[in-house]
């Protein structure tokens, strides 16, 4: 193509230019909802705990371990009782988000039991809860319990709670006695068990 033939360039690219203008307008007109969306920036130490709908501040907080109050929840447990987070006020609470038939979650189950449940047996200031982010029925969560042999309460239909906590399945979250999130895992539960154990012991002063 002769690059000096401006007229033909313009006509052949007219459609393209129109489209790009439209794209630009779509991008720049987008609402504040995507302000903390991912763009071409490298990850920093900023937190993922700011709630998008209530916090329009485009610059996330910079501290690594902020005191964020743990969102409350009420969920039905496998045993059929309503479990509230507030039932455990003044306790250190560990939340294990899992998926009822998620293989990695099932694989890590026994380790969660042996390192984050049984060592704290009998402590009145500690509680670990499992939350099914995959919203399975009681049969599937029961099967999770059977194949992992976990003893702690398992709560059903926790997908929305996971979104409130900005987390997903196969993740660990630690809540201190004042009801603040002090640890929110960014990698698989198996990779975070050691860090969570340390954190819990620190909080319990043991």
């Amino acid at each position: 193509m002769n690059i000096f033939n401006l007229k033909s360039i313009f006509t052949s690219n007219l459609k393209l230019i129109v489209i790009l203008v439209v794209i630009l307008s779509v991008v720049s007109c987008s609402g504040s909802g995507d302000d903390d969306a991912e763009v071409f920036t490298s990850p920093t130490g900023s937190t993922g705990n700011s709630n998008m709908t209530t916090d329009p501040d485009p610059d996330p907080e910079e501290s690594t371990d902020p005191e964020v109050s743990a969102p409350s929840f009420t969920l039905k447990s496998l045993a059929g009782v309503d479990v509230k987070l507030s039932d455990y006020s003044n306790k250190v609470v560990v939340l294990f988000f899992f998926g009822n038939s998620c293989p990695i979650c099932k694989a890590v189950g026994p380790k969660i039991e042996s390192e984050l449940a049984s060592p704290f047996d009998g402590r009145s200031d500690y509680q670990i809860l499992g939350l099914d982010q995959w919203n399975g029925n009681a049969n599937s969560v029961e099967a999770f319990k059977t194949s992992t042999n976990v003893s702690f309460p398992l709560l059903l239909n926790a997908s929305e709670v996971a979104a409130d906590y900005k987390t997903t399945y196969d993740r660990l979250v630690v809540i201190d006695k004042s009801g603040n999130i002090v640890f929110s895992g960014k990698q698989t539960a198996s990779a975070d068990i050691a860090a969570v154990t340390t954190k819990v012991n620190e909080l319990l002063g043991s």
């Binding site: 903390d36 991912e38 490298s42 990850p43 900023s46 997903t168």
Partner: peptide, 21 residues
């Protein structure tokens, strides 16, 4: 670089989506 954890959609914070380096 930082690999993507695809469980989190694009409207989530980038350090949730790319927590590994």
């Amino acid at each position: 670089g930082s690999p993507l954890n695809y469980v989190f959609p694009p409207n989530q914070n980038s350090n949730l989506r790319r927590s590994d380096t």
